[in-house]
């Protein structure tokens, strides 16, 4: 066995040339997996990335929509918690943190608190593995998960945690991971929606799926910035494929001026504008298939 070298000596060696170096705005620039044949993608500045990330709707909304549309709770479509042990790289960990986050939301909406404990466990594992575990006070969360009365609070807390994580990762120049979490969450949400939609053949759900066109454009934009990483590039390619299919979906938007009312002391906008989605069943199936493929690759 070799001797363990004193940490500070190692670090000191590492730190030569550090000090006043400004931090690279280009994320992924010092990765050792630079591939020379990179695609022609625009690299966005940090702020833009952050802005876009915050725009993406939370998967919770998806779950609520599904439930409202009468979708049945189906545990089987979720990513099993056993898979968490398979994720050793940060790439996988970040993606699946998002995936499990989405699953957690789904479980919460359907108030299956018993399950949520396992998912919380997996979330913790992955968060710890990414050195962001400090944002989850698991003792408290676990306690709350134990009782159904606290379902709402639990949901709010976990959402807040994820938000904080995002902020932190941006702050610490790890925005790529933030993006991955987001992506993972979105893909999982979409997958759940597709599975439920196909099963229930609910047109409302079809519509919702179609609406994701708006979102995916943003996602592709943001993920392209990170294509210097081989793994992310692969993912980005997949997303672009999906984007192509979404291009066939039509969304029409009619604008009408809205009315404002005071409801319960709060100014409330009653929207008169409308959006309509034109999507066929076969398109849904296509989307579902590609989503599933991409998603399976992520959670394997």
């Amino acid at each position: 066995m070799k001797k363990v070298i004193l940490f500070s000596v190692l670090l000191a060696a590492m730190s030569c040339g550090s000090g006043n170096q400004s931090n690279d705005a280009v994320i992924g620039g010092d990765s050792s997996t630079v591939d020379t044949a990179s695609s022609n993608s625009v690299v966005l500045p940090q702020d833009a990335v952050e802005g876009i990330v915050k725009t993406i709707p939370s998967p919770i909304e998806t779950s609520v929509i599904i439930k409202k549309a009468g979708g049945e709770y189906n545990k089987a479509i979720l990513n099993p918690t056993e898979n968490s042990k398979n994720y050793s790289s940060s790439f996988k960990k970040a993606l699946n943190l998002g995936v499990y986050g989405a699953d957690l939301g789904y479980i919460n909406i359907y108030e299956k608190n018993k399950e949520s404990l396992y998912y919380l466990q997996s979330v913790k594992e992955l968060a710890d593995g990414l050195n962001i575990g400090q944002f989850f006070d698991f003792e408290t969360i676990k306690r709350m998960a134990g009782s159904s009365k606290n379902a709402d609070s639990l949901l709010n807390i976990t959402t807040d945690n994820f938000n904080q994580i995002n902020d932190y990762l941006f702050q610490k120049n790890r925005s790529d991971q933030s993006v991955l979490i987001l992506l993972g969450g979105w893909i999982e949400g979409l997958n759940i929606m597709c599975e439920t939609a196909i099963k229930s053949k609910n047109p409302k759900l079809y519509e919702k799926i179609g609406e994701q066109k708006i979102v995916i454009d943003q996602l592709v934009l943001v993920i392209s910035s990170f294509e210097s990483d081989a793994n992310i590039r692969e993912l980005s390619m997949g997303m672009k494929e999906m984007q192509k299919i979404f291009e066939k979906v039509e969304i029409t938007y009619t604008y009408k001026e809205s009315k404002m009312e005071i409801v319960d002391g709060i100014p409330t906008i009653v929207d008169k504008s409308e959006s309509k989605v034109n999507i066929s069943e076969s398109q849904v199936l296509e989307i579902a298939k590609i989503t599933k493929d991409l998603r399976d690759k992520i959670v394997k």
Binding site: T55, T268, S273, V277
Partner: peptide
């Protein structure tokens, strides 16, 4: 000044 603003959305979008 109201402390909140509510919106019942009918059109998906940014």
């Amino acid at each position: 000044h109201y402390y909140a603003l509510a919106y019942n959305c009918k059109a998906t979008g940014m």
